[in-house]
Amino acid sequence: MTNVIDESGILAISTRLQRLSDQLRKDGLQIYKSNGIDFEPKWFPVIYTLHLKPVLSVVEIAVEIGYSHPSTISLLKELEKQKLIRSKKDKADERKRLIQLTEKGKALVNDMQPVWQKMVIALTDLTNTKNNLMKAIEEVEQQMKSFGFLDRALQL
């Protein structure tokens, strides 16, 4: 059964992407829970980034995950409260905070890696359609970088 949003086509692309994102996060939370892992999917970008790049400044994390500085700080506060990350002052520049995983954070990543492997398989299967979603997202992101939605609309 379709609804108004489904029928509105391209005009509702943001709503449809948000709906898809919400469902993926909800399912991701259930996958973590079913594997005995207490983890919020919204924490993933920071945890995964620090897993691959063990010490980063707040600004570097924001750039890596593509979030605004305030959104990144909000996530970092949550993760610090959970004792998954810690920060220390940069010896070279005391205004800069360097962020890294705690031992608890590293142990969590270790526990999550087999779950991530399952998620990759399930998500690859889910998105492996005629119009592969990941490829389409990459193409649209490239288009947005070169000449975005706002620019295109203002040009009309």
Rank of each mutant, 00 (worst) to 15 (best):
K77V: 06
I121G: 05
K91F: 14
R25K: 02
I121F: 09
K118V: 02
K118Y: 04
T2F: 07
A12M: 06
E94L: 13
D90N: 15
L84G: 05
K135C: 01
R16V: 08
W116G: 10
Q18C: 10
S8R: 12
A107I: 09
A153Y: 10
D151C: 09
L75F: 09
Q142F: 14
P54Q: 05
L133D: 07
G66R: 06
H51T: 03
K106M: 00
I37K: 00
I37N: 01
G66N: 05
Q100I: 01
Q155V: 05
K91W: 10
L24G: 01
L108V: 10
T15D: 07
I85G: 06
V120F: 10
G66Y: 03
R19S: 07
D151W: 13
K106D: 00
N35H: 12
Q30C: 13
T2L: 12
H69Y: 15
K135H: 01
V109M: 10
E40I: 06
G28C: 11
E64D: 08
N35M: 06
S74E: 11
T15S: 14
K89T: 10
T102E: 01
E141V: 05
K26S: 14
K118I: 03
M119P: 02
I61V: 03
L50F: 11
L24N: 04
D151G: 15
E141H: 08
F147T: 06
P54H: 02
A136E: 12
T102Y: 04
L17N: 09
D90E: 04
I65C: 07
H51L: 00
Y32M: 00
L101W: 12
I31D: 09
S71K: 04
N128P: 08
L154R: 12
L108H: 10
S21T: 01
R95E: 08
L150A: 14
E80T: 00
E64W: 03
D93P: 11
G28F: 06
